[in-house]
């Protein structure tokens, strides 16, 4: 686990440092700029799906997490704070499970 942690930390630091060392023209293409901006959107969207409906073996399951994410989206529509959204999602799933579903 330490190897994973350190490798990921080094990679992220080198990417930050690259911005200070690489001449801007190397990376400032319009297309590459657009792709880099959209990259977090794609990754986070993929993470939402996997974290919400993927079971232990990758099979798709509908359980308490789906309800929790629905509540999270509702709260975000109401402009709720990040921490409120995260806590509410956890609490809703815990409740749904306590009632015996998902």
């Amino acid at each position: 686990m330490w190897l994973v942690v350190v490798t990921a930390c080094v990679a992220c630091y080198l990417l930050k440092l690259a911005g200070y060392l690489v001449p801007e023209r190397v990376v400032s293409g319009e297309r590459s700029g657009r792709i880099t901006t959209l990259l977090p959107v794609a990754l986070l969207s993929g993470l939402v799906v996997v974290q919400t409906v993927a079971g232990p073996g990758g099979q798709l399951v509908v359980d308490a997490r789906v309800v929790a994410v629905g509540v999270a989206v509702g709260l975000l529509l109401l402009r709720a704070n990040f921490l409120v959204v995260v806590l509410a999602a956890g609490a809703v799933a815990a409740l749904v499970r306590a009632v015996g579903w998902g």
């Binding site: 939402v48 999270a72 999602a89």
Partner: peptide, 12 residues
């Protein structure tokens, strides 16, 4: 519900 909290974090 921490797994769902993580999902909520990614949505946020």
């Amino acid at each position: 519900g921490l797994d769902a909290a993580a999902a909520g974090a990614f949505v946020a």
